[in-house]
Design a binder for these strands. Sequence first.
DNA 1: ATGTCGGCAGTATGCCGA
Length: 259
Amino acid sequence: MKIATFNINGVKARIDGLLHWLQDSAPDVAILQEIKSVDEGFPRDLITDLGYNVETHGQKGFNGVAILSKLPLEDVSRGLPGDDTDEQARWIEATVVGETGVRICGLYLPNGNPAPGPKYDYKLAWMERLRARAQDLLASEMPALMAGDYNIIPQAEDAARPKAWRDDALFRLDSRAAWRRVQNLGFTEAFRARTHGGGHYSFWDYQAGAFDKDDGIRIDHFLLTPQCADLLSDCWIEKDLRAREKPSDHVPVWVDLAA
DNA sequence: ATGTCGGCAGTATGCCGA
């Protein structure tokens, strides 16, 4: 089962590219972030026509996540637990019903800039809620993964110019410590389970010719529970999508699971 | 050194978020 996470940076602006990508790359499951659409505005029919089940958790103007799946989706849940007052659409869960059931959590973690400040406080508080949910997922002992735009550069090797990110909310020490608190509960970071060393990125800014200079960062990740890590066959980044017409600033990251 | 893009309000363009 091939699963991709992809921050599409606006479904209205990206619909043509998204449909082509779904046809060409044919993920069994696509976990989308920044759909920037309310649920009623999501181009559901164009995607169901390609054979996907569609579950969205959107809001007006920004944020918004979705799960597309060729296999049935069950037990869909929207919103990260732990704060009933949080109105930002950044979390969706569903179980993909295949040979092996896999619990899929799609997330768009807050950017957090400028840091320090209230947006950074929100990011860290959100990551503490993520840790709590992650703990419950582990306790369930089912194959499960959390994937999406984490807005976290885990290590210096995950940025072309780490010094430029030192004080940024994506790379600050507190951000990375919070990331490790989640991962160290017992999750496998799929990309690093397969590939070592630098030069692997999932995001390049639109500004200043960042992609041409390969001035990127790796911020889109899969965290796998042990039962899911046992199924991991491969993990890779679909870099060439960034060079196409009207691209997102992110590219898809993939896992292949023996499920 | 600088360089962008998407969406909204509201109908041109400035603002926000990234």
